[in-house]
Nucleic acid binder design. Structure first.
Lengths: 150, 150
DNA sequence: AGTAGTTATTATAATTATTATCAAATTATT
DNA sequence: AATAATTTGATAATAATTATAATAACTACT
């Protein structure tokens, strides 16, 4: 945890940004909820628990900044809010998501899976891929299990 | 065009919805701009040209309805607005997109490309895939050509 | 054709997420 | 310590979308 914060601090410094207490508090919340997909409002609420004086605008600004630095990825699952997802350290690409249409859960797939597809797209469409977003909508293993045991 | 409207009409009727003049005007705009990725506001403006009496709320409701019927897919490219994209008739899955970070263009990929990936996801993650969203962000062939000719 | 009942529409108000503004606070620099 | 630059917090503004309520259009039945 501390090492990751240290590395994020260096990343900020390299672009002449500072890791202010507010930014650090926000990063800590993101690290503590790595498996979740928090909205700005969610992050705000959680940061407030430890740092009640923080303002909502600061959280938005910090998330925007972290997005620029590619520390987090901003993603939208179609429910009208942007969500912020920590990128795996050193990951070249954003990971994928499984959104369950029954229970609303969001699971992550860290495996690339798209290497071949991207080769085809780069070649056939002459498109230089910098990033991607891949989300599957369907029924997760938990909901499937429930159904078979009914 | 007329045949497609006729088929959409039937789809509506099969769920006991009607193809009102406003709904028809909206569908016509979508068909006439099949290659575009219009926001609700865009659609509203275009429908107004032919049917100036239509209300914005009706456009929203119609788009929502068409989305339910899987006539259009709602998609968000991260710019804060939902866009509505006609699904190819009879297409099992939503098509993919190439978003250019230089010029903002959005191109479509009709090929499936994900068959193998989806097999892996279904098997390895025990996730029953009903739909997907795949978008690549990068530099389109037009912007690449510009650069090499500079 | 006439009435009752349903469905859809319009105009507008309300809501929600996000961004902009600006004075005050903090931090860095001389 | 004084000055300059950056960041923050509170709040106002904006933008997209949804809710509301009165009206209009259509349907079914007599």
């Amino acid at each position: 945890m501390e090492q990751r914060i240290e590395r994020i601090k260096k990343q900020l410094h390299s672009q002449s940004y500072k890791l202010t207490p507010q930014r650090e508090a926000t990063v800590r919340v993101l690290l503590e909820h790595e498996e979740d997909h928090l909205s700005a409002e969610d992050v705000y609420m959680l940061v407030k628990e430890k740092s009640p004086e923080i303002g909502l605008a600061t959280v938005y600004r910090t998330l925007e900044l972290l997005n620029e630095l590619k520390v987090v990825d901003k993603i939208n699952f179609g429910d009208g809010v942007s969500r912020y997802d920590l990128r795996q350290e050193g990951a070249a690409h954003f990971h994928h998501h499984l959104v369950c249409i029954e229970c609303g859960s969001v699971d992550e797939i860290q495996e690339d899976l798209l290497e071949e597809v991207e080769k085809v797209v780069e070649k056939e469409w002459n498109f230089y891929i910098k990033d991607h977003r891949l989300t599957f909508h369907g029924i997760c293993y938990r909901c499937r299990d429930e159904k078979t045991s009914e």
